[in-house]
């Protein structure tokens, strides 16, 4: 559900970039997906197969590659970083709640592989 909307948005962006570069097709798209981005890679892949064949002339059969990015948080009290998914909001070293997410929230299109340029 959620992932389908994201796939459409990726296709729209990639399609635009392919057109701008006068590419004849897009063969692969590589994404970096943060662990706490809210995107489930498996669902994304499932939607992808259907969507690329139906939503873009440039992207029929285009392969999706996903690089997962580990989520890390930083503790302002003891100035150490830790694994967000394991420990959440509370610092495992000093039990402080003054923590924030360093990395892992974002999802980016890293690169695309195109033909014809």
């Amino acid at each position: 559900m959620h992932e389908l909307g994201i796939v459409f948005s990726i296709i729209k962006q990639v399609d635009g970039i392919a057109k701008k570069n006068n590419a004849s097709s897009v063969k692969e798209v590589t994404l970096e997906i943060g662990e706490v981005s809210g995107i489930v890679p498996k669902y994304l892949t499932d939607c992808w197969k259907w969507a690329v064949d139906n939503r873009s002339e440039y992207m029929k059969g285009c392969e999706l590659k996903i690089i997962p990015i580990k989520a890390k948080s930083f503790c302002e009290s003891c100035e150490q970083s830790y694994d967000t998914v394991t420990y959440g909001k509370i610092c495992p070293y000093c039990k402080s709640e003054k923590t924030y997410l360093l990395v892992g929230k974002d999802a980016t299109i890293k690169n695309i592989g195109v033909t014809g340029i």
Binding site: S9, Q13, I17, K27, I39, D106, T108, K110, V114
Partner: peptide, 12 residues
């Protein structure tokens, strides 16, 4: 056909 990689680095 040769596949060329374009770096994008753009948030989804």
């Amino acid at each position: 056909q040769e596949v060329k990689v374009i770096e994008i680095k753009k948030s989804i």
